[in-house]
Amino acid sequence: MQTLVICIDRDNDLGEKAKLETPIVGREANVQAAVALGIADPEDSDTNTIFGGIRILDELRAKGTDASSSE
């Protein structure tokens, strides 16, 4: 892997609100984490941040970049 896309949850909303253990590694795991956080608190901006990271990951991969994701 050459490129790592990282979203940092400094206030631990994933742990506090969605009851998830971090780090969250991999695209599908991040999608599931964002959905879980969005359900727990639809107004939490971390949900958009995770989805934004997934979008960037997909764009990098579409360009042929060897990339992985982690939250």
Rank of each mutant, 00 (worst) to 15 (best):
M1Q: 13
M1A: 12
T3V: 15
T3K: 14
T3D: 10
L4K: 12
V5E: 13
V5L: 15
C7F: 08
I8V: 15
D9H: 13
D9G: 10
D9M: 12
D11R: 07
D11Q: 10
D11F: 15
N12H: 14
N12K: 13
D13E: 11
D13Y: 06
L14R: 02
G15Q: 12
G15D: 09
G15Y: 14
G15T: 13
A18I: 10
A18K: 10
A18G: 07
A18N: 05
K19H: 11
K19S: 11
K19E: 07
K19C: 05
L20M: 12
L20K: 03
T22N: 09
T22H: 14
P23W: 12
I24P: 04
I24Q: 03
V25E: 06
V25W: 11
G26D: 03
R27M: 05
E28Y: 10
E28K: 15
E28Q: 15
A29M: 09
V31F: 03
Q32H: 07
A34Y: 01
V35Y: 05
A36T: 08
G38Q: 08
A40R: 09
D41T: 04
D41A: 09
E43L: 11
E43A: 12
E43V: 05
E43Q: 11
D44M: 03
D44E: 13
S45P: 04
S45D: 06
T47N: 01
N48A: 09
N48T: 02
T49A: 05
I50E: 00
I50F: 00
I50G: 00
I50P: 00
F51G: 00
F51H: 03
F51R: 04
G52N: 02
G52L: 00
G53I: 00
G53H: 00
G53L: 01
I54N: 07
R55H: 07
L57F: 13
D58K: 12
D58M: 07
D58W: 04
L60D: 04
L60K: 05
R61H: 03
R61C: 03
A62K: 11
A62I: 05
A62T: 08
K63P: 00
K63E: 04
K63F: 05
K63V: 02
G64A: 06
T65P: 00
T65G: 02
T65A: 11
D66N: 08
D66W: 06
D66R: 05
A67T: 05
A67Y: 06
S68E: 08
S68P: 00
S68V: 09
S70M: 12
S70T: 10
